[in-house]
Amino acid sequence: MGQRVTGLWPVLRQVTGSDKTAHGAAVRTAHTDAITARTETADRVVKSVCPFCAVGCGQDVYVKDEQVVQIEGDPDSPISRGRLCPKGSASKSLVTSPTRVTTVRYRRPGGTDWEDLPLATAMDMIADRVLQARHDGWQELDDRGRKLRRTMGFASLGGATLDNEENYLMKKLYTALGAVQIENQARI
Rank of each mutant, 00 (worst) to 15 (best):
V63R: 12
K64P: 02
D65C: 05
D65R: 09
E66Y: 13
E66N: 15
Q67A: 15
V68G: 13
V68I: 15
V68W: 12
Q70C: 14
I71M: 14
I71L: 11
E72A: 15
E72M: 12
G73T: 13
D74R: 09
D74P: 10
D74S: 14
D76S: 15
S77D: 14
P78Y: 13
S80P: 02
G82E: 06
C85R: 09
C85A: 10
C85V: 12
K87W: 08
S89C: 15
A90D: 13
A90T: 04
S91I: 02
S91Q: 12
S93N: 12
L94A: 06
V95W: 13
V95L: 13
T96M: 01
P98Q: 09
T99W: 05
R100D: 02
T103I: 03
V104E: 01
R105V: 00
R105M: 07
Y106A: 02
R107C: 06
R107Y: 01
R107V: 09
R108L: 07
P109M: 03
G110C: 05
T112F: 05
E115F: 02
E115N: 00
D116T: 09
D116W: 05
D116L: 03
L117E: 00
L117T: 00
P118K: 14
L119S: 04
L119I: 03
T121P: 03
T121S: 09
A122V: 03
M125F: 07
I126Y: 07
A127T: 07
A127N: 09
A127K: 12
A127M: 08
A127W: 05
D128H: 02
D128C: 04
R129A: 09
R129C: 03
R129L: 04
V130R: 00
V130K: 02
L131T: 01
Q132W: 06
Q132C: 01
A133W: 07
A133I: 00
A133Q: 07
A133H: 04
A133Y: 05
R134L: 00
R134H: 01
H135Y: 09
H135F: 09
D136H: 00
D136T: 05
D136S: 03
G137Y: 04
G137R: 05
G137S: 08
W138H: 05
W138S: 01
W138N: 04
Q139P: 07
E140C: 13
E140P: 04
E140F: 08
E140Y: 09
L141A: 11
D142V: 12
D142C: 10
R144E: 15
R144M: 14
R144P: 08
R144I: 15
R144Q: 15
R144F: 13
